[in-house]
Design a protein around this nucleic acid. Sequence first.
DNA 1: CTGGTTCTAGAATCAGATTCTAGTCATGGA
DNA 2: TCCATGACTAGAATCTGATTCTAGAACCAG
Lengths: 215, 215
Amino acid sequence: MERKRRSATGEQSRRAILDAALECFSRLGWAATTIEDIRKVSGASVGSVYHHFGAKEGIAVALYIDCLRLHQESLRARLEKKHGAEDFVRAVVTHHIAWSREHPEAARYLLRMRREEAVAAAGPEIQSATGDFVREGFSRMKDFAQAGELLALPPSAYMPLMLGPAQELLRGWAGGHVELKPGIEKVFADAAWRCLRPDAPPTTPTQSLVRRKGP
Amino acid sequence: MERKRRSATGEQSRRAILDAALECFSRLGWAATTIEDIRKVSGASVGSVYHHFGAKEGIAVALYIDCLRLHQESLRARLEKKHGAEDFVRAVVTHHIAWSREHPEAARYLLRMRREEAVAAAGPEIQSATGDFVREGFSRMKDFAQAGELLALPPSAYMPLMLGPAQELLRGWAGGHVELKPGIEKVFADAAWRCLRPDAPPTTPTQSLVRRKGP
DNA sequence: CTGGTTCTAGAATCAGATTCTAGTCATGGA
DNA sequence: TCCATGACTAGAATCTGATTCTAGAACCAG
């Protein structure tokens, strides 16, 4: 009944295949790497690859979930101490950028494969592997909003406003032509907060060079 | 010497192939549609398809450029009358969302294929087809910034801040699970402007978790 | 030691992209 | 008008690489 009898060996080769896959996908791209490439780099056999992952897409999905987990664990740890809305927003944005800089291969893979068909098709599977975390963060933002610590907005707007700019920056970086300057996370954290913080008196949006100028 | 002798016929079948491709890609996804699918829908032959596009990727790229052109022409027209920074920013964001709603297939295709390997590899070709437009918009933003009509920021931050949130929203929409509510473009235009408008007093960038929190 | 299960091997199969050869068709010039 | 030319269409033949299949090895519980 055990899910993993010979786990030691099996898990080991599964790991080797995932590592090889990340290397190959990074170097050659997802479409261009063949099972043969992965087989050579990992030292496994075709049969073994298919035993563990079922199909080429299976590798992509497993690797995606793997990287996502790394990312989320790191973020979770960082968010534990954040209780206010501003701290929360800034920490999420900053972490997103900083983590990507620290784990370039994994980050690039996540950025590239997001919405890539091979992975997108496995939506439900990924949901179940990581959905709670996202849902949790989302509901936390709604709570902040309800408490007046964030601007009141349609719920579906929070995530895009908070992370969209960073995501777009990182996408450019992953594409290879923009670099990630050292202090850039601060710029984006500021921007996200500027965009989400409450305040804004009667909101005279038409002419806006007037207000603001705190204590 | 003429580039297009039998152009009428040729152009026609090229068009038919592109249309068929958009339909197939939308319905089945890029990876899953075969040349055979496109051949059947368009009525062309394999040879004809390869004559016009060279490879499956060639179809994807041509279609991408085709859709991008539509998008840009529409945006260009809309921007002509916008002279101030605020108008400009709001128009770009609003247009991005509204256009997507009006041309769902093309928009979804653009969103899905952006950074998709098949298309990303053709970067240079796409650059030359559309680069000017982007460059132009970018330099316009730098001008605004220089004139003090936009917050001073690292140049690479403008595009992500302006369009990142909308892009993220649309990506969710293209993925199929978020819907595009009627007035949502206003929310995102407001947010973009909130985030880019100048103002912000002496800007004490180093420590920013202190101030703010008004009365 | 035996039966059951996981995992590894690698040859065989299959699908589908690409290539190749043989035309067809419209045009410009003789 | 008639031919040469190059754009274009057809579809069969190849090739590449993903997937399947059959055997067997390693391991564990009884």
